[in-house]
Design a protein around this nucleic acid. Structure first.
Lengths: 221, 221
DNA sequence: TTCCGAGTACGACAGCTGTCGTATTCATTC
DNA sequence: GAATGAATACGACAGCTGTCGTACTCGGAA
């Protein structure tokens, strides 16, 4: 525990990249993090593209990422991960939707915090990551009751790629016909994708489907 | 300009109440505001109910309010205003929808800032308020081009109370029949409200209507 | 190789939606 | 008192949606 090696590791400053589209939130987070011992914010980004460029040129120990900022979905985490395998990713977002949490963790995130959680969770998450653990914020952790391994926490019905695409179109206010046109398939097939979606998600109207898609953080037309 | 009276006014510390459902954002804002000269954060609230209670017992010069937090819509501003007429309200939110801005200003807000704006806008807004002006953040100001009086900036088609209620139900994924039931009116009347909504907003499907309602910041079922 | 899931595509049918009417009541404004 | 706008309510009709089928192809897993 107190080996010289550990001490050296503890001594080195932890470097952090901040990615959030809200400048005010970034500014606040910067102050919050600067108050932590041995942690420095080394860079910031306000959208997905600039973040990718940033990660190519700057190395950091931890990325604090707001899922839901322009150009950033859960799958974006995999891209970042393959670009900078040693960088740990802390998701910090307003989205508490179980499917989103699952997608983020599966894509390689090391922590999932929500913005309505206790600010101290940030330090807790950092500590967990230092131990190689995965950390979930309280809001998310207790969505499903009790203390269970991260991987067991939530298992929403998996959606196929086509179903996800269809869901996105619905979120953008597109009709079945428009969806079919965009995907280059028969309206009847688009219809079937939507039907499967509704069965899997137990939703039964366009309005419900749209509302769900928006909760997932999908871009709204 | 430099009268003794003015100096005394400038000397007095400006007191601020923070209302935002995201604890991390609150914490960050607190640090941000503490860095300003002669400004103190005196209280915080995370939802509408607690904010109302707070305003009844604590007086402050300025309230920084996140439109969109639980139990807080634009109309909430009027309530706060009649409860504490001398308190100025700065809206600080992620919502850039023109209708929302208009509603907030009409309800008595003294400033409307968006979270993706420059953090310095906060200081600018405070300065404007000190002069008795109304301040709009850059993102909002340039939604409609150029420099025009605040009242002229945006004039969306006005919606009637019933239409707003109907829109809310749609956002929550309710069908026409459910809406009618909830409002205690004939399904055909609910239908008509929806029809008028769509005409006014130039939207032509449930999905579009739902997406629009969500952008307005209406609670999603 | 056989099986399964994903994707494709179509049909049928009840019910809902979007769009067009009309009409009455009531409060407010001119 | 006439006019206006909001809210109420109904009818008709085409088209879309939600739900149930069936059926073919294809690639990967058992």
């Amino acid at each position: 525990m107190d080996s010289p090696l550990m001490e050296i590791k503890m001594m080195r400053r932890t470097t952090v990249i901040l990615a959030d589209d809200h400048a005010i939130v970034r500014e606040g987070l910067k102050l919050l993090i600067s108050a932590m011992a041995n942690v420095s914010v080394v860079a910031e980004a306000a959208d997905g593209d600039r973040l990718l460029n940033l990660v190519r040129s700057v190395t950091a120990d931890i990325l604090i990422l707001d899922l839901g900022m322009p150009g950033v979905a859960a799958q974006f985490i995999s891209d970042l991960h393959s670009l900078a395998p040693r960088m740990k990713i802390v998701v910090l977002t307003a989205n508490t939707e179980p499917r989103m949490v699952r997608a983020a963790i599966e894509a390689g995130a090391s922590a999932y915090l929500t913005k309505d959680g206790d600010p101290e969770e940030l330090a807790d998450a950092f500590a967990a990551i230092r131990n190689g653990d995965t950390y979930l914020g309280q809001t998310v952790r207790f969505a499903k009751s009790g203390h269970v391994p991260v991987t067991d926490i939530l298992s929403p019905v998996p959606l196929t790629p086509r179903e996800l695409q269809t869901l996105q179109m619905v979120a953008q206010g597109m009709t079945g016909r428009e969806t079919a046109q965009r995907l280059g398939i028969s309206p009847l097939t688009a219809r079937k994708h939507r039907e499967n979606l509704m069965r899997k998600l137990n939703l039964h109207s366009t309005a419900e489907l749209t509302a769900y898609a928006v909760r997932l953080g999908m871009p709204v037309g």
